[in-house]
Amino acid sequence: MENSTGLDQLLRNTDLFRPLPDDILVIVAKALTPRTLAAKEVLFQQGQPGEELILVQTGSVAIYTPQADDPAAGQAIRIFQPGQVLGEMALIDQKPRSLSARAEEPSTILALGGKVFRSLIQEHPEMAIAVMSGLNERIRYTTDFLGEVSVWVQRVAGGSYQTDEIIGQSNQLKDATLANLAAEFAQMASKVQKREEELKKQVAELRIEVDQAKRDQEVKQITSSDSFQSIREKARLMRQQKEANDKE
């Protein structure tokens, strides 16, 4: 069947399931429960007990820190694309979900129950290693992620708002989460920059105030004197002389 071939392909492309032999993959495929999510639909909430592992089949799913006033909203920490797995941490450490998850667009997911997951790990050490390497990858990802953010923060703290550069970088980023964060960061930097420039302008507009009455009075005092009249007359004669000389 085309569908099962598609599923088979998906599992083969998933780091977590790739090491499993074909016969086990068939068992896994049967144990997966498909589910459809609308855009912005919450898959699980922060603090809930974690009972299943999620494999994204189509669309994309984000893990995020929920906002207090709107549990479906919040800045995405990471966005998962088809073939990527999330939620396995809660199955391993048996602790409540550390973050919430929601569909970023209409998506389909496949859920694997905790019981099947744990027995797979026990029977297939290579799958345990795959889980470990997945966690490993997540640590590296987090480190890189923080490194990148720290560069941007330092740049803005230093007063350089090269938002074009950040946006340019975000277009090159393959990782949807980083790209998303870079775009939001660039937006923030440009807002900060604009605010700073407006503030600067306020400081920088110089009002020139001259006492007009005093000005007129002083000018009159100087220009009404006899010596001023004589200077003006002398200057007129000298200018005439100079013009005559220039013509020669």
Partner: peptide, 29 residues
């Protein structure tokens, strides 16, 4: 008298309150 016989007068000022009033009189004169 130097100003009076000049073809061009270039007045230099700083954007400083101390310069404004006197410069305005100079320019008018």
């Amino acid at each position: 008298l130097s100003l009076a016989i000049s073809d061009i007068l270039l007045v230099i000022m700083r954007p400083d309150k101390q310069d404004f009033q006197g410069t305005s009189v100079t320019v008018d004169v």
